[in-house]
Amino acid sequence: MTTALVTGVGGFVGVNLADSLLDDGIEVRGIDNFATGRRRNLRPLRDSSNFSFTEGSIGDSDLLGELMNGVDYVFHQAAVPSVPRSIEDPMTTTDANCTGTATVLDAARAADVDTVVVASSSSVYGSTETLPKVETMTPSPESPYALSKYYTERLALQFDELYDLDTVALRYFNIFGPRQDPNGEYAAVIPKFVDLMLSGDAPVVYGDGEQSRDFTYIDNAVEANRLAATSDVSGEAFNVGCGGRVTINELVDALNNILGTDIEPEYDDLRPGDVKHSHADISKAREHLGYEPVVEFTDGLERTVSYYRG
């Protein structure tokens, strides 16, 4: 039986990825310390006899060594997310995302794992005016979080060169969908807006709302991870998006349309480190991984609202 280790399995991408792997009869081992993941996310996974979970840190090399024994694929999703959080606390972000990634990769090398797929971020591009963003562009990370994600992917690709460990880095573009935490100061924009607007409250838009994002439904990120793990490609970074962009104002309008509401957002100052526009060129992933978005933005947004209504 194929065996996969998912780091950060209690997180948004990790739990959805684990769910998909289990549906296909793959044995899944998960690890999370719940610094940002949620215990409640694991409840449906525990019903599967093919799932095992260990509470612990990816900084524990001995623990990772045990978990990776006999593993075919590692999906490294564990991280401290959020640009604003990294600006307020760069040490925690750097330690978890950089040192943690190094520990995961080194344990995978020692265990002779087939492939490691690491989660990077579109934030590595920075505020370049050139759109869409292509992998050949020179990265320009503008926050500790973005810098940590660039380190994550570069270290992974270096392991491919130095140790003959197959590695792939995926630059996520604003992933959203069910099981994403809508609460807290650092919540992502879509779950936070949905949660507020379901309660009849106004969402807060930072800036004029004309900044745009390539919002990418979670099923697309899961598909990209699985394709990356089983492909013959190694030592490469790929954009994972839908290849379009939606402004924050358009997002509010779309949510009002789905919810049948007419809620006006409140506007506040721009936050430091936030990029103006995010738009993925997905031609490289399409060509080398066979990646195609399986759920487009509007359909994904409707599914997300339905989940939070439930």
Rank of each mutant, 00 (worst) to 15 (best):
E266F: 10
R43N: 11
F53W: 10
M68G: 04
V116Y: 09
D114Q: 12
S20A: 15
S199N: 12
D19S: 15
S48M: 02
D112A: 06
P178E: 03
R179N: 02
D299R: 09
G11A: 07
A111H: 00
A280K: 11
Q158C: 06
I190W: 05
A119Y: 02
P203W: 12
N220T: 01
L147A: 15
D60R: 13
Y291N: 07
S48F: 05
E27Y: 15
A221R: 10
D262I: 06
F12Y: 08
Y125H: 02
D160T: 13
K133T: 00
G14Y: 01
D166G: 11
V124H: 06
H277M: 05
E142N: 12
A285D: 10
T115M: 00
A187Q: 03
L105E: 02
F51W: 08
T36K: 06
K276H: 08
V117K: 04
V194P: 07
I258K: 05
E302K: 15
T101D: 01
L227P: 04
D72L: 05
G244P: 01
Q77P: 02
D208P: 01
D24G: 11
F34A: 08
V233K: 02
R226T: 05
V113E: 06
N33R: 12
N69M: 10
E129F: 00
V204K: 15
T103A: 15
A96Y: 01
I263V: 11
T130N: 06
T136D: 10
V233Y: 02
N69I: 09
G37F: 11
V6T: 09
V6E: 00
T167Y: 00
N50C: 03
D23Q: 14
K284F: 14
D72I: 01
K133F: 04
F238L: 08
A108Q: 10
D253E: 15
F173G: 09
F297N: 02
E287N: 15
G200Y: 13
M197Y: 09
A187W: 01
V189I: 15
R309E: 14
R39S: 14
D32N: 09
G184F: 03
L63W: 02
V189N: 11
A111L: 00
G300H: 09
P139G: 08
R271W: 09
L170M: 04
L301E: 03
A18E: 00
G209F: 13
A224Y: 04
A156G: 11
I282K: 06
Y151R: 06
R85G: 04
T216W: 11
D299L: 02
V124N: 03
E264T: 10
A229W: 12
D95K: 12
D274W: 08
I87E: 12
V9G: 04
N256V: 10
S20N: 07
